[in-house]
Design a protein around this nucleic acid. Structure first.
Lengths: 187, 187
DNA sequence: AGCCCTCCGTACGCCGAGGTATGGACCTGC
DNA sequence: GCAGGTCCATACCTCGGCGTACGGAGGGCT
């Protein structure tokens, strides 16, 4: 929060924008609020960016890297067999989901948003499918069931954000749900 | 689109607002756009409603009735055994979902929205659980699996809105996914 | 020292939203 | 036919967003 270096870079803006994107969704990526948060003004912004849409695109690109490749790489680096890895990704998707991220997924007319969302979803599902194949499923079954598992986790994240009362109260109970889904999907 | 009766009622406004809510989410429930769509002005609006929030609350109440009780009653009235009914509800939730409805579910800070969403989710899940019990599951298992089924369908609706490319192209393929989920969840 | 290029603060215009005030059209009952 | 209530159009205010113009601070180079 301090005036780190008095002089801002393009990345400083993207960092703050990503934080707001994950917190409150794409509509929160607005120039003036971010400027206030950074303790600066629009004069700085329009030197680093050509428009608000320019910032949004850059922020989405950063999100895509973090939520897609980085997350998968982090999951894959941890110990465990295929099933454990699939469950870890599930855990990340359900509990690690930031509120604004769901607003991204909930569909926006912005074409760049839709494209980024689709690429991230595909990467995650393909990763799940690879783990399921390693656990013995045929490629076709693994693909179908990876989709089922991923949608179940997305739905759980959705309910956690909007209707937490219908989910188990305890983190243990919610993990048990994840486990039961894995149980059902594996032979 | 015609000037139906030149004179508008409170319900006319709620009808139009619900349409926009389901189409583009709660932020789209705005006075002036709806007035334009109805071919009238704010002068009419502020006679029937005290504020924009008044309209939003009324629209949510209507949505809750339609998406909750009415939908379940409609599904339940159709022919079929418990499993068929559960699949029918699934079909409605996945394919019948309007884009704006997901924005409601994706979490909003508005307390009235959150409360309405939670009630609707609970009704649907409880209905699913009743069908699963009728199919032979124990009450506890039925409740857990109803939750899994519902989240899988919500997630599918989410992907349909934001990343349709990762879902099967054909309606047949998507129905097959629903069927596979039912298969997995029943003993 | 003088210059230039980088970076940012200030002030402005535009638009579209929420909300208010007011007057007038139109029906309704007496 | 006329008085009063119902319904709505117009004009106006504020606020907050996007985008632009312009000028000035500040450091590096010669």
């Amino acid at each position: 929060m301090p005036t780190a270096s008095s002089r801002l870079s393009r990345d400083s803006w993207i960092d703050a924008a990503l934080e707001l994107l994950l917190q409150s969704g794409p509509d929160a990526v607005a120039v003036q609020p971010i400027a206030r948060r950074l303790g600066t003004t629009k004069g700085s912004f329009y030197w680093h960016f050509s428009s608000r849409d320019d910032l949004l695109r850059a922020t989405l690109a950063r999100w895509e890297a973090v939520a897609g490749d980085d997350l998968i790489a982090s999951v894959d680096a941890r110990a465990g067999d295929s099933r454990k890895k699939a469950e870890t990704l599930a855990e990340e998707v359900t509990t690690g989901q930031r509120p604004g991220e769901l607003l991204l997924l909930a569909g926006t007319d912005h074409p760049d948003v839709a494209a980024a969302v689709e690429r991230v979803a595909r990467k995650r599902i393909d990763y799940l499918a690879r783990q399921l194949r390693s656990s013995g499923l045929t490629p076709a079954a693994a693909q179908r069931r990876a989709l089922l598992v991923y949608t179940a986790y997305l739905g759980q994240a959705l309910l956690a954000a909007s209707a937490p009362g219908v989910l188990p109260d305890s983190a243990r109970g919610r993990r048990a749900l994840v486990g039961e889904m894995a149980e059902l999907v594996l032979p």
